[in-house]
């Protein structure tokens, strides 16, 4: 009887209608503090909405995989992907386009950091081979699918002959985000870690890093990373030429206008530039090598 009543309730419950008018749904991989992401993409949404004259909505995603899946399924229209996730997303989504990257993204780096008190005697080094000193240490990557927090660091570690199982405990940790990696290494919960150079520099500038506790061991060579990826069907949905308008809007963000300046600052960039698709071939091959792309 109860189920009967409930059944009725289910049938009668007025459920929200499917989104009626076309909304541009933007998102980003969750690589930083969620408050920061909310602030940043709230601004991006209103900026794009004003410039393009369509409704723009930020859909927070807390998982890298979910962001890729959402893009493949067409639930997300424009996503700020990392190098690896961008390649994964484009491989799974026919027609997807790379719209832009930051000025810093073409020549991106990761940093290996270490807890100073825990690793006394370990000094910064310039040769990749010295990464082998991290064997037997408690080591943390960022998120599993992060390019700068996992893929490239793991790639360079492998080049130096360090496998994930060589770390203390038989495996590395995954802190989940770049900020978390800094915090965990600084606190000593992990002795060393790897993260996005740009996040590191900006936290350093903001004074959020205690340099008496953390030091940079090594900076990786450069590789291409973050980029905006858009669905291929935007012109069909929002009118002819929409994709190029969207791309222009991103490229035109300038530090002269207050809100745009704020966006650029939160992105840690001077401006956005066009991103040649070919540059991600190296990321793809590393991804395949490490099994993150099949």
């Amino acid at each position: 009887m109860r189920s009967l009543l409930f059944g009725l309730a289910v049938l009668l419950a007025p459920v929200a209608p499917v989104l009626a008018s076309e909304v541009l749904r933007i998102s980003a991989i969750p690589d930083q503090n969620p408050e920061r992401l909310n602030r940043l993409y709230g601004l991006v949404a209103s900026e794009l909405s004003d410039q393009l004259g369509v409704k723009v909505r930020y859909m927070p995603v807390i998982d890298y995989t979910a962001a890729v899946t959402g893009f493949r399924r067409g639930d997300l229209d424009l996503v700020w992907f990392g190098g690896l996730t961008g390649v994964q997303a484009r491989l799974q989504t026919p027609g997807a386009l790379v719209l832009a990257q930051r000025d810093v993204d073409a020549r991106f780096r990761s940093v290996f950091i270490a807890n100073r008190p825990a690793l006394q005697g370990l000094t910064p080094f310039s040769s990749i081979d010295e990464l082998s000193k991290l064997k037997g240490k408690r080591f943390s990557f960022g998120s599993e699918s992060s390019t700068s927090g996992r893929l490239m660091p793991q790639f360079f570690l492998a080049k130096a002959g360090v496998q994930p199982k060589d770390f203390s405990g038989g495996q590395p940790g995954f802190s989940g985000s770049h900020d978390a990696t800094i915090a965990l290494v600084q606190s000593g919960a992990y002795e060393a870690g790897a993260l996005n150079e740009q996040v590191w520099e900006s936290r350093l500038k903001e004074g959020k890093v205690d340099t008496s506790k953390v030091l940079v061991l090594w900076r990786t060579p450069t590789y291409p990373d973050y980029h905006w990826v858009a669905q291929g069907n935007l012109n069909k949905r929002f009118g002819a030429g929409f994709t190029s308008k969207l791309q222009q809007a991103l490229l035109n963000l300038s530090p002269d206008q207050p809100r745009q300046a704020q966006v650029l600052e939160l992105f840690g960039a001077k401006r956005f530039i066009k991103a040649p698709v070919e540059q991600y071939a190296s990321i793809e091959s590393v991804g395949r090598q490490l099994g993150k792309i099949r």
Partner: peptide, 16 residues
């Protein structure tokens, strides 16, 4: 990441 307070919990714990 499937919605709700769990996300707040994990993200705020991960950022300490």
């Amino acid at each position: 990441g499937l919605g709700g307070i769990g996300a707040d919990l994990r993200l705020s714990l991960q950022s300490l």
